[in-house]
Structure formats: C-alpha cells, structure tokens
C-alpha cells in the first residue's frame, strides 16, 4: 500500500506543472479569490498574463483609459498623482499580494493615478474581456470575484467616508 502511494505520488509529481501550481497557490492566498475552488483557480490562472516590469518602467499613466486589473506578485509599485503645478506626488506604495486598477473591471474610465515600478516587479494582469468571458462561461467564478470586489470597494468607501468625517471642517 505504501509502495502504491509512493508510485502515485511520483506519477502526480511527473504530471503536475509546478509553475501553474505556483501561480494557483499565489491566487488562493489573495482575498479576492479566496472563495474559489481548485479547478476554478486553474481557469483564472489561465486567463491571467504575467509581465515583469523593471525599475522606473510605467505600467500606466494618469488619464489612460483602464482596461486591466493588476495584481502584484513580487516587487514594489508606486502610485502617484500629478499636482496642479505639474509635479508628481506619491500617493501609495503597493506591495506583493496587493492589487490595483480594479475600477477598470467595472467601468472603462481614465486612470486616476500613474503606476510605476519602484523596483523589479512581477505583475499579473487580468484583462477586462477575460473577466467578461469568465462571467459568461464560468458564472460561479465571476460572481465570486465580483462579490469579493464589491466587498473590498465597500470597505474602501467606508474608510474614505470616515476619513472625510474625521477631517476638520475648513
């Protein structure tokens, strides 16, 4: 029996794709995809495109029309906004496991900030059309992702409201 288990383990290791498994494990660790099952994560991993950005390389500029959600796998991304005087002002630093550009999944609006790689970073891109395709062919995945996204946006909105309330009236 032990021998059979050993053989099965060996066969599984031979058949399994370690890079695919790695991506799937990473996706499972994200809040956005926590409710998804094994195969569903596989579908999602297949829809995503990976790209490495070098330090100082722009992912998008403020005003570009957004069409993809970015998930940072490794590295650091800086988000900045242009001030009225034309100088960039850093508004946030994104770390591994965090995502940004999620509004483009919901509506195609110009980006509100510029994203630049602060160091060598690996990013996963989920393009809007892929989400549409997932919603059409795998509605359970689509509904789960959209529900999580709505919860996260709601939490961000709540935080923004609190910040506004705490701000002293000018």
């Amino acid at each position: 029996m032990q021998k059979l288990t050993g053989w099965l383990g060996l066969a599984e290791r031979f058949l399994r794709d370690p890079a695919f498994e790695d991506r799937r494990r990473f996706l499972k660790s994200l809040t956005l995809f926590q409710d998804l099952r094994f195969t569903e994560l596989g579908h999602l991993a297949q829809c995503m495109h990976s790209r490495v950005y070098h330090e100082g390389e722009s992912l998008f500029l403020q005003g570009d029309v957004g069409r993809a959600l970015f998930i940072l796998k490794s590295g650091k991304i800086e988000l900045s906004q242009m001030e009225e005087e034309g100088r960039p002002r850093s508004i946030s630093i994104i770390g591994p496991g965090e995502f940004f550009g999620e509004m483009s999944i919901l509506e195609q609006l110009p980006r509100s900030a510029t994203a630049t790689a602060a160091e060598r970073s690996e990013v996963l891109l989920l393009y809007r059309a892929q989400i549409d395709s997932i919603l059409h062919y795998h509605p359970r995945i689509g509904v789960s992702v959209m529900t999580r996204l709505a919860q996260l946006l709601s939490a961000r909105l709540r935080r923004a409201n609190l910040a506004l309330l705490e701000k002293p009236a000018s």
């Binding site: 495109h49 390389e57 722009s58 992912l59 998008f60 570009d64 993809a68 891109l125 393009y127 395709s133």
Partner: peptide, 26 residues
C-alpha cells in the same frame, strides 16, 4: 509566445497589446 509578445511590448502599452490580442482572439 503570447507571454513573450506581452513582455516585449513597452510597459505602458501592455494593456493595449492585451486589448488587441483579446479582440483578434475572440
């Protein structure tokens, strides 16, 4: 091959490259 095209694309135009690939693909 797709990954290589995306990697070769200038950083800021990756979204557009994906748009193009997606349109042609569908």
């Amino acid at each position: 091959l797709t990954a290589a095209i995306i990697q070769a694309c200038p950083g800021r135009h990756v979204e557009r490259a994906l748009h193009l690939i997606s349109e042609i693909d569908s």
